[in-house]
């Protein structure tokens, strides 16, 4: 299993580095842009906070975009949340199915290793990459704060990064089960799942009737504006997250272990 895990890490390394550096780099640049935009932001802050549903959706009604915390929550929060969710979904949705798509499944499964071990190795690869992705982005954002000589409360920053990691694990868990079903890499479906959750959260913050159902989506407990405003998410959002993750991974084991592998 260790050999398969190592091989998976190596094969996914290039994509991992690209995604980490692009998402982390965009967040890094966003943070550095704050200083040059600080004065303009102060002028715009009032306007942004009085745009009704739009302000609610992006958290600008509770946080001032003129503050670094508010700027981080609205700008970096969107880039990091959406970028990392897309990375998690693309990584997880292809990790099992790519073997059949690139016709390497017969080679792998003719080696003396059970399908359960293959799933475990690939699942661990996804988990390790998501943790490492979070670590790289965290380092880049910290570096930007250091360069600026200004930061946000460490506890809020860490809470945000960890909750986004949890969100990514949930999205990856769901996509992992899709990967086990499919003999083709469903990258489009993966991106669709990440975007669907993002839009659901956005809509839920704008449409009053949907607000009560926000807890269903993983973005509900990883919303940067709420975390920076120290608004605690509902426990139910974490519970749903854990249930969906466990269900996704369990389904992947169950399906992949039972189904026919195409050549």
């Amino acid at each position: 299993m260790k050999t398969i895990l190592t091989k998976e890490l190596k094969l996914n390394l290039k994509n991992f580095l690209i995604w980490s550096l692009v998402v982390g780099g965009m967040g890094f640049v966003c943070i550095l842009l704050y200083q040059s935009m600080e004065t303009e932001m102060a002028d715009m802050a009032d306007a942004f906070s009085n745009m009704g549903a739009f302000s609610d959706a992006f958290g600008m009604s509770t946080l001032s975009i003129a503050s670094l915390k508010g700027f981080f929550a609205t700008e970096v929060g969107t880039v990091h949340g959406l970028g990392s969710a897309m990375f998690a979904s693309i990584l997880a949705i292809g990790i099992l199915s790519k073997e059949e798509e690139q016709h390497s499944a017969e080679f792998l499964l003719s080696l003396p290793v059970s399908r359960k071990k293959v799933i475990t190795a690939k699942g661990l690869c996804v988990l390790i990459m998501l943790v490492a992705f979070t670590a790289i982005c965290t380092l880049l954002y910290c570096l930007a704060f250091l360069i600026m000589g200004e930061g946000i409360e460490a506890s809020l920053f860490i809470a945000y990064m960890l909750r986004v990691l949890l969100m990514n694990i949930e999205i990856a868990g769901i996509c992992f089960s899709v990967s086990a079903f499919s003999g083709k890499n469903r990258m489009g479906t993966g991106i669709g799942i990440a975007l669907m959750f993002y839009v659901f959260d956005l809509m839920g913050r704008v449409v009053p009737d949907l607000k009560d159902y926000l807890f269903i989506g993983p973005f509900s407990f990883a919303n940067a504006s709420e975390i920076m405003s120290e608004i605690e998410p509902k426990d139910s959002s974490f519970i749903v997250g854990i249930i969906l993750t466990v269900l996704g991974v369990a389904t992947a084991y169950w399906i992949y272990d039972k189904r026919d592998i195409s050549s």
Binding site: T3, K7, L11, Q102, H103, E106, S110, L111, S263
Partner: peptide
């Protein structure tokens, strides 16, 4: 020892890596 008709592996790996990989998994 199985040889499939299509004989596909991982495109980005070198031949030596694939051969060693198969032995290592065993």
């Amino acid at each position: 020892g199985y040889m499939p008709s299509e004989a596909w592996f991982y495109g980005d790996m070198r031949v030596s890596e694939v051969i060693k990989y198969a032995a290592d998994v065993r």
